[in-house]
Amino acid sequence: MKTKKKKTIEVLDIMIQHADKGPSGFWVDDYEGCGNPKIFPEFEEGLKRGRLVQKEHYLCPWNTAVMYGNGRGNIHTGCYHSCSIEKAKYLSADMLKSILKRFKDSMSSGKYDDKDNITPLLTASEIEYIEDQEKKEKRLEEERYKAERAERIKRAAKLIQKYPEHKELFASCYGEKVLVQTYDGNIDFNPNGYADVVGAEKFTYDDYIDVQIRSFHKTRGWFATCFYNIPLSFKGTIERKTKDNICFERIFVEGMYPDGLCFDGKEEHVWMSLKGFEEYEIGDSVSFFADVYRYVKTSNGKQIDYSLREPRKIEKIENYKLPTDKELAEQAVNDIICETCYLGEQCNRISCLRPKKELGQLKREMTKMVMGGKKK
């Protein structure tokens, strides 16, 4: 304990000396943490490279339980789960010096040896000061948000006039680098988002937003899912072949979301460049990887759709029947039932424990719901 206290005091002395650079904690790890690299440059290594860098210490002055006393935070769970250094950032350099010296003296005198009975490190006036600063910051943030919202509404006036039902969306996102998922489809609000859309070279930003909205329910949904996530592979059977292009009767899509959850789906009648598929004939089934890209479709008014290009790792595979909508729905239903089953803790994932009649009825009802109005 004495060694830890001594090392803590050494670190505190440096913090006091550099209080004008803000508060600092004792560690950084995995690109985050409370250590202040302006005071301790070695913390920069942890923040940039994700490495653990820490200062040995007995107790941290910015632990919520230390700052506010018993009843706030939990000193036994460690700083990560009971940290109020964000509040300390409102304090002036002189206030930080005073608080750190007070903490240093209290720790040296043994005041914190009994961690079950801790009185507040902060004075009532310091607590009030922090609360006032928080309110002031919140008020300024609200004013800034209102001003930015008004500016976005002003800039999006033409789109709001055309799509009044999306006014709040424009007020929040117009001109921002955000992708919004609505019930009808995705809207990419990134001002530079249309730079990679083939055929959108003459688009304005408003054109880009407008075309995305007009493309709702008219895009290849599974290719769009791949575009915004991680495509893994594509499989299909060649239906037609021309001088420069081929058409797949159906392409089976396999991909993965960023959280590791996989998905699959299919798209009908997909045209691609013949390049890479020259040696294959009508009726051949192939698996391959390709880039998903967006392009402007003009056959029925301007719309943005998704397709595939730059195929690679092409392999001929055995002819097989790609899953139908119903088969894909049944697969999804099976996964949902397994993941949410009330017998999950007892199940070995090989033999289902639920009564066959109950399971069959549940599958039929859920498949019907998933299918909706789709053709079987």
Rank of each mutant, 00 (worst) to 15 (best):
K6G: 01
M15I: 07
I16Y: 11
Q17S: 10
S24Q: 11
G25Y: 08
W27T: 00
V28S: 05
D30A: 05
D30G: 01
D30R: 09
P41Y: 02
E45G: 01
R49V: 02
Q54M: 14
Y58W: 14
P61E: 10
N63M: 15
V66Y: 04
M67C: 12
G73V: 10
G78I: 12
C79T: 03
Y80W: 13
H81W: 14
S82C: 14
S84H: 09
A88F: 05
K89F: 03
Y90C: 07
A93M: 01
K101C: 04
F103T: 02
D105Y: 09
K111T: 11
Y112V: 09
Y112W: 08
D113M: 08
N117A: 13
T119A: 13
Y129F: 15
I130T: 01
K136S: 07
E141M: 02
E142V: 01
K146R: 14
L159G: 06
K167H: 06
A171V: 01
S172E: 13
Y174K: 05
G175M: 06
V180E: 08
T182A: 00
T182C: 01
N186W: 12
G199S: 11
A200K: 06
T204N: 07
D206W: 08
I209M: 09
H217I: 02
W222L: 14
C226T: 05
C226P: 01
F227A: 08
P231K: 01
K235H: 02
I238F: 06
I238D: 07
R240V: 04
N245C: 07
V253T: 09
Y257P: 00
P258T: 03
W271V: 14
F277A: 03
E278T: 13
Y280C: 08
I282P: 03
S285L: 07
F289W: 00
K297M: 09
D305M: 07
L308S: 07
I317D: 10
Y320A: 09
K321L: 05
T324E: 03
D325W: 11
L328W: 00
E330K: 15
A332Q: 02
D335H: 11
T340E: 13
E345C: 04
E345G: 00
E345I: 05
I350N: 11
L353C: 05
L359G: 00
R364M: 12
K368Y: 08
M369C: 03
G372Y: 08
K375T: 15
